[in-house]
Each structure stands twice: as C-alpha cells, then as structure tokens.
C-alpha cells in the first residue's frame, strides 16, 4: 500500500460527523487541514473538541500548511481486520504539524522501511465520501 499514489479508501472506517468535528471534515473536502486555536489563550489542539483543553474556553479554527514531522510511528505487519489486512505492511505515524498539534495518519509514497522519526511529510487528501476526505502523509523535501 505504501507505494501506491492513491491509497484505497474502500472499507476504511468512516467518520460520523459531530458538532466538534464537522468543520474539520468539511475543510478536508476543500483540501484544507484545520486544527483548533483558542481565541482566549492561543492554545492549539487536535483532534477537534468543544472545549480548549488548556483554558476551558471555546476554540476557534486555524488552517495549517499541511506540513509536519514524523514524531513516532509503527509499521503494521500483522492485522486481522478487513480492509487493512489487504494492505500490510503499512506505516501509521503520529505527525507533529508545523503549527504544533499532532495528528495520526498513514505515511505513503515511500517504502515502509524508509519511514523515520524526524522525517518531513506533507498532507495529501484522498476522497472518501461526500462528507470527508482522508489526509495521508507523503515525504516532503523540506
């Protein structure tokens, strides 16, 4: 899976849009990756919540550049659950965005054995359904 240009989305779990996350998923359809930023204290967070985890205020939104660094990762080589069992081995990473918050996703566009902590990555959205596209991560030059 990790070498394909457009990763398959058939069978992947689908987000059930809710009050906290709807703006985030809607932005994915526009090719934008949002995180939250608190108007009160400036704290940035991901995943979307209805409260700032730092100060308790109501968070607003910040459009990111969609770039970051692999903070940690694993390569899943054994997986019983469909559809993922078709795609092993694949890399699951926690990416630290340049804006601060971390987000989980698959690293694509390179061999799984090339994924490293500290590796620069950029987002690539792959359409999932009418409500959401999924952000994947591929190696970036800088």
């Amino acid at each position: 899976m990790t070498n394909v240009t457009t990763p398959p989305t058939e069978g992947r779990p689908v987000p059930l849009l809710d009050a906290a996350g709807r703006p985030y998923w809607e932005a994915t359809l526009r090719g934008e990756l949002l995180v939250q930023e608190c108007p009160g204290c400036g704290h940035r967070q991901f995943y979307p919540r209805q409260i700032c985890v730092e100060c308790g205020d109501t968070p607003g939104w910040l459009t990111t550049e969609g770039r970051g660094t692999v903070h940690t990762f694993s390569v899943v080589r054994q997986q019983g659950a469909y559809p993922f069992n078709q795609w092993t081995p694949y890399a699951v990473a926690v990416v630290e965005l340049d804006e601060g918050p971390r987000i989980m996703g698959n690293v694509i566009g390179c061999e799984v054995d090339e994924v490293r902590i500290g590796m620069r990555v950029e987002v690539e959205f792959v359409p999932l359904n009418e409500e959401a596209s999924l952000p994947f991560w591929r190696p970036a030059a800088t």
Binding site: G11, R12, P13, V14, P15, L16, F46, S74, Q79, M104
Partner: peptide
C-alpha cells in the same frame, strides 16, 4: 468494514492502527 465511527476514534480508526501498533509507537 466501512462502518461509521463516532467520537474521538474517528481521528484514528481510518488509519488501521492496531492495539500493538499503539504501544509500538511508544
């Protein structure tokens, strides 16, 4: 397969991480 995931797991479930994969990250 293809089930809707509610709540916070919708930000992890689409990526096919496993329980072992989670500890592997640590």
């Amino acid at each position: 397969p293809g089930e809707q995931v509610a709540g916070v797991l919708q930000y992890e479930a689409p990526w096919g991480n496993t329980l072992i994969g989670a500890y592997a990250m640590a």
